[in-house]
Design a protein around this nucleic acid. Structure first.
Lengths: 201, 201
DNA sequence: AAATTATTATACCATATGGTCTAGACCAGC
DNA sequence: GCTGGTCTAGACCATATGGTATAATAATTT
């Protein structure tokens, strides 16, 4: 009951990952996933209730993997004495490393966050976005308290820019060259410097 | 041949605009457009060859309207003595005014530029993007010559950031409040200031 | 009034979608 | 050997898609 079942499920998930990282949730074809997984329709509906259940499953898997990865990396870091820009730089670098390690997971998550016409579980999206917002909120609050920011811009404006750039950072640098680790670190450094001169004191 | 035909076509275009600004090209339903336009299927295929022809038609209409609007506004401006940041601010403001004046046209164009899974005329997309690139190239070249930029960043980096932010600017500010003209102008000012401190000398 | 142009309603097509159901087969552990 | 979990293939469903065809009918121009 274990091995074969495990195989089938893994193939299913792989195929689902492929499809859902190429098309939006709605445009992704469950039939194609099943075909590419090399399983029969019955098997699919034996394991999952429907298309959405499959999607939510791999999305949660990806999300969990990301959280775990980032937390692990962040634990090793000493943030004391670092201002928001250095912390951001770290965050970009770690996110980059996750993207390099789990490109499909990363892609799935970013695609999910960008979904506009989603009939998908809105709660989950709120959770994802909420945790990012929370983190950003905390980060900017601390930065303001520490006087990391200049006072040219309103909090609202700052947060909007930060939020967008953080969620879309990797879209800016998506040329092949940008996927080399060296270039990644350089881009992260430059980018945060750019933010620093724009936002910093 | 005039009045009734004109009416029908206008209703069609209105309905198409509604649908294509809410769903992606592929997800937009031609049947719904036809139904909402209150015309029969025959009438549609009498006026347009197929779904794509309709889409390209309203897309070109929107594009033309935008170019005309921007050119007209830019003609009234005196750019002499203005650095790249003031020029950019102007550009953002004018784009914002267009977005406020023709929200559906604006939305259609940005959605088109963001389409990833497009089976749509690739040439047209290249044209749209190409003209933006050209303009940006020219702008940054001039700015470098005039010494508007600091020398913290490479040209490559500068262009990448500029290009991305310009193409996606309005995604950052897409809350309802941000669609008010006043807020738009304020956002444009703040945003360019932010760029200026980040890039400027 | 005649001819042309627009428009209608309807039926139809092939294809694809997500999802259900069934009858049987495979394969494990008891 | 039997049982229960797993898997298969295929038929089937309602629904929707973009697109075609037809025959009758309005509306407009000549």
């Amino acid at each position: 009951m274990k091995e074969k079942s495990f195989e089938r499920k893994n193939e299913l998930i792989e195929a689902a990952l492929d499809e859902f990282t190429q098309k939006s949730y709605e445009n992704a074809s469950l039939n194609k996933i099943i075909k590419n997984a090399g399983i029969s329709k019955g098997t699919f509906y034996y394991h999952f209730q429907d298309k959405q259940a499959l999607y939510l499953f791999i999305l949660k898997t990806a999300g969990g993997s990301q959280v775990e990865f980032i937390n692990k990396q962040m634990e090793e870091q000493d943030l004391k004495g670092k201002d928001i820009f250095e912390e951001l730089k770290l965050q970009f670098q770690i996110s980059g490393e996750f993207a390099a390690a789990q490109p499909k997971y990363y892609r799935l998550i970013t695609m999910f966050l960008k979904e506009k016409e989603n009939k998908i579980n809105k709660d989950l999206k709120d959770t994802f976005e909420g945790s990012t917002d929370l983190w950003l909120d905390e980060l900017t609050k601390k930065a303001m308290k520490n006087g990391d920011f200049n006072n040219r811009f309103s909090n609202d404006f700052l947060k909007k820019i930060m939020r967008y750039l953080f969620l879309n950072y990797f879209e800016i640098f998506n040329k092949e060259e940008d996927y080399e680790l060296e270039k990644m670190l350089e881009n992260a450094k430059n980018f945060v410097d750019f933010l620093k001169y724009g936002f910093g004191r």
